[in-house]
Design a protein around this nucleic acid. Sequence first.
DNA 1: CTATTAATAGATAGGCAAGTCTATTGAAAT
DNA 2: ATTTCAATAGACTTGCCTATCTATTAATAG
Lengths: 148, 148
Amino acid sequence: MFLNQTSHYALRAITGLVTTGNSEPVSAKDLARQVDVPVHYLSKIMRKMVEAGYVISKKGHGGGFVLDVDPEKLQIIDVLTAAGFDIDKQPCVFGWETCSNDKPCPLHPVWKRLKQCFNDWACHTSFEEIRLESAKIEPPSVPFPEKQ
Amino acid sequence: MFLNQTSHYALRAITGLVTTGNSEPVSAKDLARQVDVPVHYLSKIMRKMVEAGYVISKKGHGGGFVLDVDPEKLQIIDVLTAAGFDIDKQPCVFGWETCSNDKPCPLHPVWKRLKQCFNDWACHTSFEEIRLESAKIEPPSVPFPEKQ
DNA sequence: CTATTAATAGATAGGCAAGTCTATTGAAAT
DNA sequence: ATTTCAATAGACTTGCCTATCTATTAATAG
């Protein structure tokens, strides 16, 4: 639910980098397989992460992507924003152009509560937390079946 | 943000019915104009609301839709569900088929928190509350400009 | 009865996000 | 130098949700 495919993929990709926690570059190909995202599509998304400064990309032989931030300092909202998500740009449930706190649509107060709740989650969940939580987790027996 | 167009429209439509609070049928045409949703599309959505038993439809001259529940008893989740939304069917961020509390994906614990938060909101917000909140609100000077 | 209003059903079309393909650039290894 | 690996760029295609259109059914008014 929520968010679009691109945002999901972005979260997956960064989670992938964070949990492998390697200083060696991970190629788009490998990362794509690990987090189950189409390679070329992932590349595009990773470009955005690079532009946002969360990841460094190395071209050529042995190249790939390396995380370039302390997972402690990286919140979910950062990745979503880099992927193009903007909570403030999200129109209210009614399509009123003028909808705002001053001129709210009928669902505004209620909708605002949900937004607030989402925002808290996105702003206060770091990838360090995700790393720690996922460390407890055993991956499924065949995590990402090789595609031929 | 969140949810799809259909869910948004459903919330708008029911909000429209609740806030006019009339026992007279409101035609799809009028409701469509009021809440700014394409008529035919709205009709399809309203069908679902009828099937769920939240609305009664009257055909023919003077017909339309009438709310058939106490707004107090109608929660946002009910309308979303009737519109086809199912929070449990929503796949986790990683596409793992097996993802569950037992075999969670790396983002599962964190994602679960968001779902919980959404769920609380959807289950504990009634249309009576929406009605009350929206009663305080003045609609924009030209709420829904007539289309010609 | 007939005309008119309105919901319903199903088929069809549109638009945009998602995904793919091809070519290019860049870096390392041999 | 040359080959090979890998990111980048951008054009192109696909698929699905959204929206529209047409015909049908149903109910009320006169």
